[in-house]
């Protein structure tokens, strides 16, 4: 009996592995194809027969992009916008979350409810009036509309997440500090933020992904080529008016655009999985 059990178990495991590997291949395939195409010559990219991997991988497309001053500008713009927006948002939402979790103040529940209610508001509702507002104050054609609003704790979902996490931390921590004469800013900075590191890492990476990939707002506000970020530049590369599609170059640009995302995710994946599995939250 035990031997039959072991065999069945073995087959069962093999089956699971096979399924996991099949799914994994499907998942990684587009990425493989992106890299493979980026290394092809134009002829190989056009070939009627499938070229799985180029005979002699070409780095030409990468070299061209990395030395192209325009691409460096797009890359720099993406980095600038993302860092500024994510930095401003993370700090301000941690302030708000602190207020909602660690201090008792009159009106807190009302404000908290208001904040939660903005979760239901589709982004499109405020999109138009914000555009009119920003165009009135001359912000269209600058990075301001996609960075500055973040400084005002502009994402209710993450405030909520942080608040939940902060609620779960023992109150004794800050009460002891308060008695020692520390003020709330010091407690926030010295005690709460370090304790929130895993959830902060998660929120940071989600915000990073959102800003790095963002297209809808940048397309409206970044009206000049010198302001363009990577997503706009790539979307514009495939020019439907033109017959010519330089696929190797487009794919090389895609690889360069996605690389920071993959790297950031791999660096933060443990925190992401821990906090999502703990709190059951979607990215």
């Amino acid at each position: 009996m035990p031997s039959r059990f072991v065999v069945r178990r073995g087959i069962y495991r093999l089956l699971i592995y096979l399924l996991l590997i099949a799914g994994g291949l499907f998942t990684l395939f587009p990425l493989f194809w992106m890299v493979s195409t980026s290394l092809k010559t134009m002829e190989e990219a056009n070939a009627p027969r499938v070229v799985w991997w180029p005979a002699r991988p070409q780095l030409e497309a990468y070299a061209r992009l990395l030395t192209d001053p325009d691409w460096l500008v797009y890359f720099g713009n993406s980095v600038f916008v993302t860092l500024l927006a994510v930095g401003g948002t993370v700090i301000s939402i941690s302030l708000a979350a602190y207020a909602f979790s660690r201090i008792e103040w009159p009106g807190r529940d009302v404000v908290f409810f208001l904040m939660l209610s903005t979760l239901m508001l589709p982004m499109q509702t405020t999109l138009v009036p914000q555009y009119v507002l920003f165009s009135r104050i001359g912000w269209v054609g600058t990075f301001n509309p996609i960075t500055i609003p973040g400084f005002f704790a502009g994402s209710a979902l993450y405030i909520f997440l942080l608040r939940q996490f902060m609620m779960s931390l023992p109150r004794e921590l800050d009460e002891a500090a308060l008695i020692d004469g520390a003020n709330h800013l010091q407690i926030w900075w010295h005690i709460l933020l370090p304790a929130c590191r895993p959830i902060l890492a998660t929120v940071t990476i989600f915000l990073f992904v959102a800003h790095w990939n963002s297209l809808q707002l940048p397309v409206i506000y970044l009206t000049r080529r010198s302001l363009h970020t990577l997503p706009i530049a790539i979307a514009a590369m495939r020019n439907p008016q033109m017959v010519e599609q330089p696929w190797p170059t487009i794919m090389a640009a895609s690889v360069l655009t996605l690389l920071p995302l993959v790297a950031a995710f791999l660096a933060a994946q443990r925190q992401v999985f821990e906090s999502v599995i703990l709190s059951g939250v979607k990215g």
Partner: peptide, 12 residues
């Protein structure tokens, strides 16, 4: 302190 910390969100 409550309003101080919540203010960025309130003003935003």
């Amino acid at each position: 302190w409550g309003y101080f910390f919540a203010s960025p969100w309130i003003v935003g």
